[in-house]
Amino acid sequence: MSGGPVISLEDVSFSYGGPRVLDRVSLEVEAFEFLGVVGPNAGGKSTLLKLILGLLEPGSGRVRVLGMPPERGCRQIGYVPQYPLFSRDFPITVEQTVLMGRLGSPRLFGGYRRQDREVARRAMAETEVQDLASRQLRTLSGGQLQRVLMARALATEPRILILDEPTANIDMRVETEIFDLLKQLNDRMTIVVVSHDVGFISGYVDRVACLNRTLVCHPTAAIDGEAIRSLYAADVRMVEHLHH
């Protein structure tokens, strides 16, 4: 297992019944890489993630996660969705939500054990939501909820962390905090983050995958106006961010 890419897509195409959303996309993500996926809306970013997670099946081509088919590989992935599917007024606490990261095989029924609670507690400490543990989900702000969802993903003790627009509804200060945290986590896991904000993430990621039906990869250093223009097919003003 060691040495090979942790995620690999070979010639993957996908459509939801209409025109192709992804057209012959190939991508290899190395262990401990920090990959940013950028592209316009409806460019196929979320679809790409769902294929990696095994929530969708490719029309053609092959997806492998840690050398396994994604339905099995996905258990090693911590996933932070952009639009969580639950309703915000579900009667549940932060701790209960984070504990759900501990569910799954080999235990298919029964409750949580002490070790599970310990892992969940550590995950909450890492994303700085331990003080919110007994709060109701419906009382959280957007930024707090995002950290709780990250804690839930970390509670799965993943080898790969995948985040879909983690900072879409969050102010700039929190965005920086979240990406600083991701940079720390990158020491022990591979990270794939989808974003629409190529300028911001280029200060953090090792490599940027530009996705608009087809996929082109750039090392972070090579992101310039030309690359962005070809991606968005329009002039985009680039703002220099100086991180670190």
Partner: peptide, 10 residues
């Protein structure tokens, strides 16, 4: 609560 997440947990 969240079918998608439960499915990902196997």
């Amino acid at each position: 609560f969240d079918e998608e997440f439960a499915r990902l947990r196997g």
